[in-house]
């Protein structure tokens, strides 16, 4: 346990050191979400077709867009695993005393850190265009903690995928194929109630919906009625993805 925690911190440190040397990826990845809240949000809100429970549409989608980008970051973290597999880095890491599960969880949470920065960079832009956040530091901290852990879970899923897809090209394809359905079949852009029944069913199993719901409640609407359920769902999602990724990790080097 202590060993796992220590390795997790080492992997997070590695990620922070990487970010310190080169942040261009974070800036480039911010372009897409900024377009969503800068262009898509205002255009759709002028149509007034989507019931948002009284909050401006751009405010409504800001948490969803933020979480979409962090999920992108996490899902493509597996790409780095594929690269590290092609190089000898993973082989060398697996020959250290660090256990495999601590490597998986460590790397996943390291991706969570990267995702946090990705989410934070959107905040000032959202503030400038007039998105009104609930000014409560405790809510903010909890929201970003949720983003951190959820991103870790998604990164574990991507490590799981990486252990099956051994080339970068295949991984790129599958990465896209995972993210877009998750995004559109969630409550990120519209309330779940607006979806056709089948999609609504799917949305109950979509971890992204729970993350968006919790973060939207904490940052924008203040509606925390589902918060406990959201937290439980995210915890289950994390546990399942960590376990599956740890079991499958061995494959990645064989």
């Amino acid at each position: 346990m202590m060993e796992g925690l220590k390795n997790m911190l080492v992997m997070i440190e590695l990620e922070l050191r990487r970010l310190r040397h080169d942040r261009t990826e974070i800036y480039f990845r911010a372009v897409q979400p900024i377009l969503w809240i800068l262009i898509y949000g205002p255009v759709m809100s002028s149509v007034r077709a989507i019931p948002t429970g009284g909050v401006p549409y751009t405010d409504f989608i800001t948490p969803g867009v933020m979480i979409q980008t962090t999920t992108f970051v996490s899902i493509f973290y597996g790409l780095m695993m594929v690269w590290e597999r092609e190089s000898g880095i993973l082989k060398k890491l697996l020959v250290t005393p660090a256990s495999r599960y601590s490597m998986v969880i460590g790397r996943s949470m390291a991706s969570g850190v990267r995702a946090l920065f990705q989410a934070l960079i959107i905040l000032p832009i959202a503030l400038i265009i007039g998105v009104r956040f609930i000014p409560n530091p405790a809510y903010f901290s909890l929201a970003f903690t949720i983003i951190f852990f959820a991103s870790g879970g998604f990164a574990a899923i991507s490590i799981l995928v990486a252990s099956f897809m051994k080339t970068r090209e295949r991984f790129m394809g599958i990465g896209q194929a995972i993210i877009m359905p998750l995004f559109f079949a969630s409550n990120a852009l519209y309330p779940v109630q607006m979806m056709p029944p089948i999609l609504r069913e799917f949305s109950t199993f979509n971890p992204l919906s729970y993350v968006v719901d919790a973060v939207r409640g904490l940052l924008i609407t203040g509606d925390l009625s589902n918060l406990l359920m959201d937290l439980v769902a995210i915890a289950i999602f994390d546990a399942v993805s960590f376990i599956l990724a740890s079991i499958s990790f061995k494959r990645i080097i064989e």
Binding site: K6, N7, V10, E13, L14, R17, R18, H21, D22, E86, S87, G88, I89, K91, K92, L93, V95, T96, P97, A98
Partner: peptide, 29 residues
């Protein structure tokens, strides 16, 4: 694994951090 060390044939260091930082990460592991 506590007794051995290993240098694979392929490249096995992170290129986007410094040499010192590579060693630091391994020292901590």
């Amino acid at each position: 694994r506590r007794l051995i060390s290993y240098v694979p044939q392929e490249m096995s260091v992170w290129t986007d951090i410094s040499g010192y930082e590579n060693l630091l990460v391994y020292a901590k592991i």
